[in-house]
């Protein structure tokens, strides 16, 4: 049997579509973990990235923090938090947020830094207050890059949220972990396919969000 057969067998089994271990439930759980982690990470990464980018300070500190964040192993952090905190969503959220903050932070900082300085100078010269300079001049131009940082973070979260199952939570990782222990490859492949599918959906959502929010004047080359 190859991977496609496993996937086919998994999805054609009607038992996988119902109940607390059914695909809809697991999918919803996975989306919930991912969304929460992404929101928390964005709430940290975006403001810090925007402000440091705008004032052009702290770039080195930021790069160091981001590298440190990347260096912390998500899985290791999960196990450690589980040992320390015990069962719950928190031990899962911590590694996911640590994973997602660096790409958001660094990309946002870079995006704002790389905005052409002359419109910014013009805006200040016309008497635009600093908050407006940031939100109405810099952010709209930096938006494609900022979104790409969020997208990278979202994909990593979706893929990594599978580890929640290791500490007895739900999500699509359930199929992968259970499949591993039960030597049920059907489940593993099915779960992996679902995660990859969710990642593709995430890509599509970000693509649509970029179409909707990025000005046609900025979009051209990209």
């Amino acid at each position: 049997m190859n991977v496609l057969d496993f996937a086919h067998a998994f999805f054609s089994d009607t038992a996988h579509w119902h109940g607390y271990d059914g695909i809809p439930t697991r999918f919803a759980e996975h989306v919930r973990y991912s969304l929460e982690a992404l929101l928390i990470a964005a709430a940290i990464g975006l403001p810090v990235g925007l402000l440091t980018g705008h004032y052009g300070r702290g770039g080195n500190t930021l790069a160091l923090l981001a590298t440190a964040g990347r260096a912390l192993p998500s899985f290791g952090l999960l196990v450690l938090m589980f040992i320390w905190i015990g069962f719950g969503l928190l031990p899962v959220m911590i590694p996911l947020v640590v994973l997602a903050v660096p790409p958001i932070l660094v990309t946002t900082y870079e995006a704002i830094r790389s905005v052409d300085p002359s419109p910014v100078d013009a805006a200040r010269g016309m008497g635009m207050p600093e908050t407006r300079v940031l939100l109405q001049v810099e952010v709209p131009v930096a938006l494609p890059l900022i979104l790409s940082g969020l997208r990278t973070a979202a994909i990593q979260i979706v893929s990594t949220a599978t580890i929640a199952a290791y500490v007895s939570l739900g999500g699509l990782g359930r199929y992968i972990i259970d499949g591993l222990y039960q030597k049920d490859y059907e489940k593993v492949v099915g779960g992996a396919t679902l995660v990859a599918g969710l990642a593709l959906v995430t890509l599509a959502i970000f693509w649509a969000a970029a179409r909707l929010t990025v000005s046609p004047g900025v979009r051209r080359g990209t």
Partner: peptide, 23 residues
Amino acid sequence: PVNTLRRSMGYVIQNAGLFQHRT
């Protein structure tokens, strides 16, 4: 106030410095 002053003076720079996201 500085922004009141600036709004009372037109400001033109090299390369125009237009906002690429606005018409």
